[in-house]
């Protein structure tokens, strides 16, 4: 009698291998999120600066990111740069570079939006109470900016995590690729593919869903 396909997940170290692949995905995502947050702050402040060139530069950057499928950008970095600049980047480095390029612009735009969203009379009524500029920032403006920004930034993080699935396309051995290797080994088991892909689907959900829920809660509480 043949085993059910689901059992192959628990044969040997298959499940650990999948988790290992997931960690590759998450590592790329976490580094990207960290870098995007740091560069994004600069990006957001640049967008609000009075310098027209800096603003235009950011605008173009943001439009590129908005218009180009991430897969195209990834190919551009991985295959294109290798050719144009004779730069041989590893898949993981290319992925982090490209996702950070994307994440910086998106995060910067969120920061810009949060900074400009606070109504002017908030500053004015704080000033009318006799607060110093520093106090106005500390007690009135920054708390409101953070409340607006944080849920959106967390949502962006789940988007970054989901997008890391793409690195499979440039031959990084992440969770999807590991899954396919397992399927390859167990080709005699006809429904192995079903269970492996289903598991990968669930793994992504298990990672992203709690983060989305957190963002939703924060948004509701701070709305």
């Amino acid at each position: 009698m043949q085993d059910l396909g689901i059992s192959i997940l628990f044969k040997g170290i298959n499940f650990q291998r999948l988790l290992g692949g997931l960690w590759v995905t998450l590592r790329i995502a976490l580094i990207t999120i960290g870098l995007s947050a740091a560069f994004g702050l600069l990006f957001g402040l640049l967008m609000l600066s009075k310098n027209k060139i800096a603003k235009g530069f950011c605008r173009v950057w943001l439009e590129i990111v908005r218009f180009m499928p991430q897969l195209v950008l990834l190919y551009l970095v991985y295959f294109g740069f290798a050719r144009i600049f004779s730069l041989d980047l590893s898949g993981e480095t290319s992925a982090i570079a490209m996702f950070t390029f994307w994440g910086t612009a998106e995060m910067g735009d969120l920061i810009r939006g949060a900074l400009t969203s606070i109504p002017r009379h908030q500053r004015e009524s704080a000033a009318a109470l006799g607060l110093t500029p520093a106090q106005i920032y500390l007690h009135v403006l920054i708390p409101q900016t953070v409340r607006r920004l944080l849920p959106q930034a967390i949502n962006l993080s789940t988007r970054i995590i989901k997008t890391t699935a793409l690195v499979k396309m440039i031959n990084v051995t992440e969770v999807l690729k590991v899954g396919q290797q397992i399927i390859g080994q167990f080709y005699r088991q006809p429904d192995a593919a079903f269970w492996v892909y289903f598991t990968v689907f669930l793994l992504y959900f298990i990672v992203c869903w709690p983060i989305s829920v957190l963002a939703g809660r924060l948004e509701k509480r701070w709305a």
């Binding site: 989901k162 997008t163 793409l166 499979k168 999807l176 992504y204 869903w209 989305s212």
Partner: peptide, 9 residues
């Protein structure tokens, strides 16, 4: 909360 790529596979 899941990537399209995984959904398609």
């Amino acid at each position: 909360n899941t990537p399209l790529l995984v959904q398609l596979f």
